[in-house]
């Protein structure tokens, strides 16, 4: 390798390493702003200032979905396994919304301890399997839907 090429090799190598290091530093600094949603555990730890809008993510707890028969109002409880938060929403829910499904609710925490969402998105997990297989699993007692048992609520703990 000629000296000129060696010099260029070093320069290009330094460029890539330098950009990588700069990006790593920038990402670390922005870490807390990169999260799309926070969990009920984070809410319990009070990482969010009050009256601030944020996105709450977790699973819809089985048996907590209540729909108002006369309007689009719906209420359900979001859990991450450790903590829970009741959510109210007035609008159209996505196709994937169901009990045990991951959801992301955008809104703010009310004085009443409930999370008032103005948008609810379903979060799909990374599992893909044929419908017939899922039905067969259900018949043999291994349902695919995450079955979250009701745990202690945030209010009970306080």
């Amino acid at each position: 390798m000629t000296p000129t090429r060696k010099k260029r090799l070093v320069l290009v190598g330094l460029l890539v390493i330098g950009i990588g290091a700069a990006a790593a530093v920038a990402i670390t600094a922005l870490q807390s702003n990169m999260f799309f949603f926070i969990t009920p555990t984070d809410v319990h730890a009070q990482t969010m200032p009050p009256d601030r809008q944020f996105r709450l993510g977790g699973l819809v707890m089985a048996g907590t979905v209540e729909r108002d028969p006369h309007s689009l109002a719906v209420s359900f409880t979001v859990t991450d396994g450790a903590y829970e938060l009741p959510v109210t929403f007035n609008g159209i829910l996505p196709d994937l919304f169901r009990e045990g499904q991951g959801v992301i609710a955008h809104g703010r925490l009310g004085e009443d301890g409930q999370f008032h969402a103005h948008e609810v998105l379903a979060r799909h997990d990374e599992t893909y399997m044929p419908a017939e297989l899922a039905r067969a699993l259900e018949r043999t007692g291994h349902p695919m839907e995450a079955n979250i048992q009701p745990g202690p609520t945030a209010r009970q703990r306080d």
Partner: peptide, 24 residues
């Protein structure tokens, strides 16, 4: 993996088990 996202995690993994049924 680093952050929480709306997008789901990786289904196909080169290391470890993929979470897609083999028939798909």
């Amino acid at each position: 993996e680093w952050w929480t996202t709306l997008h789901q995690g990786s289904t196909i993994r080169f290391f470890g088990e993929s979470t897609m049924h083999y028939s798909m």
